[in-house]
């Protein structure tokens, strides 16, 4: 959508490492209607998606729960066979040559580990090295770097089941990169993490991105992940791609708003500041809504200059809200 299509007509990868063309995934859902009778219902989890991701790009893939994000990732890894359309990752059809593709991709499932639960991280990594036939020198260089950047040193001898969620996630991300994958899929890598762990994960992914060699597709519910890592964001809703472009574009299209929460020294009537509107007043605290595409700085300066300001914070719009606003019209149809 709005992106120029890269086509080389040869079926080769060209610049696009990931290429989807009219991809569908239909599930049959059965509902019991009687003792033996059941009703079949088709659910189109992914409903005709086409996009391309160029080598070295970091793309955010977002959408509400059940929109089809994970189903797409599963088709891109070869776990699921598409019901229609064509998928190519690094020139390989994932569902037909799953094990061959496996050497070239790295996958992190935020919800569950790909490591061996009862084994120390070091043993898991060693097994990864042998399974993927990573050259020892290269493995050591990659492991050293991951251990260094992700602070894994003290965790290497700890069995995975004893790691905290944040530690486990860092361990998982390292495991996915030890064999130098061309494509890295991150399915909610920051889900459930505390602020510090999230920051560590993002900082690490920023490094991976800066190196420029790995193509990253990232699904998340946290807009900050996207803001800090992705120059491009795709939004999927009800199995369809509804936005493909930069984050600012998403906010502009969605007309999303951020909220400045201000605490004044005393109770005031609803303040009137240009560029924002007061949406809520509760004692000395007021909520000022302003467009997400605008900077908060001039607004804060304005408020501070005019009123006795004690404290303030900015609330980012949740992706769900942005999308809800984007497609509120369609949903009501």
């Amino acid at each position: 959508m709005g992106r120029t299509e890269v086509r080389d007509g040869t079926g080769g990868t060209g610049d696009a490492v990931i290429r989807l063309d009219g991809v569908c995934k239909v599930f049959d859902v059965y509902r019991r209607t009687g003792l033996l009778r059941r009703e079949r219902r088709e659910v189109r989890a992914v409903d005709g998606i086409s996009f391309e991701v160029a080598r070295g790009e970091t793309v955010g893939y977002i959408g509400p729960n059940g929109a089809g994000k994970s189903t797409t990732i599963k088709m891109l890894t070869g776990i699921l066979v598409p019901s229609g359309g064509s998928v190519r990752v690094a020139g390989i059809d994932p569902s037909r040559e799953r094990t061959r593709l496996a050497r070239r991709i790295g996958v992190v499932f935020g919800q569950r580990t790909t490591l061996w639960w009862d084994l120390p991280l070091r043993d898991s990594y060693d097994l990864v090295r042998r399974m993927y036939r990573v050259e020892p020198a290269r493995f050591r260089a990659n492991l050293d770097r991951c251990v260094d950047l992700l602070d894994l040193g003290p965790l290497l001898e700890v069995p995975v089941r004893q790691l905290s969620l944040g530690q486990r996630m860092r361990g998982d991300i390292a495991a996915a990169l030890l064999h130098d994958p061309e494509v890295l899929y991150l399915d909610e890598p920051t889900i459930g993490l505390d602020v510090i762990s999230k920051a560590k994960v993002r900082q690490f992914l920023a490094e991976v991105k800066a190196a420029g060699a790995t193509t990253v597709l990232l699904t998340t519910h946290d807009l900050t992940d996207i803001e800090q890592l992705c120059e491009r964001v795709m939004v999927i809703d009800h199995g369809r791609l509804v936005h493909d472009g930069d984050l600012a574009g998403l906010h502009a299209v969605g007309a999303s708003e951020r909220v400045l929460v201000v605490d004044f020294a005393r109770e005031l009537p609803a303040v009137d500041v240009p560029g924002a509107r007061t949406v809520r007043v509760e004692g000395p605290r007021q909520w000022l809504s302003f467009p997400a595409s605008a900077s908060a700085a001039p607004l804060v300066a304005e408020v501070a200059a005019r009123y006795p300001l004690v404290d303030l914070s900015v609330r980012e719009p949740a992706i769900e809200e942005v999308i809800a606003r984007l497609y509120g019209d369609r949903a009501s149809l």
Binding site: R55, E97, R100, R103, R104, A141, N142, D144, R145, L149, D151, L177, H179, D180, P181, E182, K200, Q203, E207, V208, A210, A211, A213, T214
Partner: peptide, 26 residues
């Protein structure tokens, strides 16, 4: 972590190179 992006002495900086071409299916 702060100096993460800065090349350090004694360590070759070869961050996350792309995978070498994978041989065709065995």
């Amino acid at each position: 972590m702060a100096d993460a992006g800065v090349p350090r002495a004694g360590r070759p900086v070869r961050p996350f190179p792309p995978g070498e071409p994978v041989p065709p299916e065995e």
